[in-house]
Design a protein around this nucleic acid. Structure first.
Lengths: 196, 196
DNA sequence: TTTGCTAATAAACAAATGTTTGTTATGACA
DNA sequence: TGTCATAACAAACATTTGTTTATTAGCAAA
């Protein structure tokens, strides 16, 4: 019987985890390969048996990170639920992905600038798709009368994504509220606003 | 008659402007002194006749940036207006500071991690003061019945600041709306929420 | 024991980093 | 004219950077 190896337990995964942590905390340029090697407990040159280059690590981290957000949100974009329910589910899904690893989210949101030109363009394209998914749901809600017709769609979406993209700065995986609860509270705040 | 020299026209100001631009675009660690020197049109060593060190530049930029936000918002925190009016004025003031120089705001929001320990603590303290100013106004609004009593104060404030701190990513100084108008729209969105 | 594979080491490379030093050009004022 | 301050240059410094290469240890299967 073939031994079932935990796919997240190899040396490559240990290296990538350390890279996510350090890129999130110190930034891509602020992190040296020696920093990563020290965190893993290995000499710098040893890393290159498992990864191609420093930038290839960033590509992997950002691509994988973006995919997690898209995969988590996608099922709710066009579900049969009402626009308000769909948007709420998208907000909760987004917050859950952040909470799963806030440092990875910091890399996704802030370190993509250090990708090569091709990968930058790909990342910007996916971010635009992501924004468009939110805009679509909001427009559905306006059409159905659930959301205010006087909304500035663009600024509303950018404000929502701003609130969501700021969460890795303060969200702690072990807080009093679960990620789903936090997402629900944020959704309530955005839906109903401040005034009662 | 003494010649009146524009205080923003010296070589030191040119260097600091280039540093703001590059730190905002490439990050502190991603920017070399040679990058800055090239942007100014000078050899690297020449910079040190005008600035003490790379980190001293960052200290100056972040301190000055934080001060701009505090100065812009402070007069509205305890004005005689209603809580809703005060919060609206604070949001508009914040957006106006961002619009004045989005790159400087990016440095303030994301590069403070590269300060020395003492300056990091000082910056965190000022950020806490800033958050507290928004929390205070929201609590006033809850007490006076203007804002929903069911609000989660902390999450509401972090969502507001998230929306505001994301603006340097998309705000362009020459957009169709003035910074004040954008701030007003954001304030409306936050006050009334999405549903009508 | 030998073979073969995985993973790590040790050492070095060229290039880039922040910074310092001694010197030189420029122009205002005496 | 000579003096003085400002600002830049030219060259170098010790370190740190990402990466490569040749070699060695550990261990499972034959």
């Amino acid at each position: 019987m073939a031994t079932v190896i935990d796919p997240a337990s190899g040396p490559r995964e240990a290296i990538m985890d350390a890279a996510v942590h350090l890129f999130g905390k110190q930034g891509f340029s602020g992190t040296s390969m020696r920093d990563i090697a020290k965190a893993v407990g290995v000499l710098p040159g040893s890393l290159y048996a498992h990864i191609a280059s420093k930038e290839a690590m960033l590509v992997d981290i950002v691509d994988d990170g973006i995919r997690r957000f898209l995969d988590a949100v996608r099922p709710h974009i066009v579900s049969g639920a009402t626009p308000a329910e769909r948007l709420r589910a998208m907000v909760i899904a987004h917050v859950s992905v952040v909470a799963d690893n806030p440092e990875r989210s910091l890399v996704v949101f802030h370190q993509w600038r250090f990708l090569g030109d091709d990968n930058i363009q790909a990342a910007i394209g996916k971010r635009r798709d992501y924004e468009q998914a939110f805009i679509g749901v909001i427009e559905d809600g306006i059409k159905s009368g659930t959301f205010r017709a006087t909304l500035n769609r663009r600024i509303a979406v950018l404000s929502i994504l701003g609130a969501l993209n700021w969460t890795p700065e303060w969200l702690t995986p072990n807080g009093a509220l679960s990620p789903e609860e936090v997402g629900g509270v944020i959704a309530d705040t955005l839906f109903m606003g401040l005034r009662g």
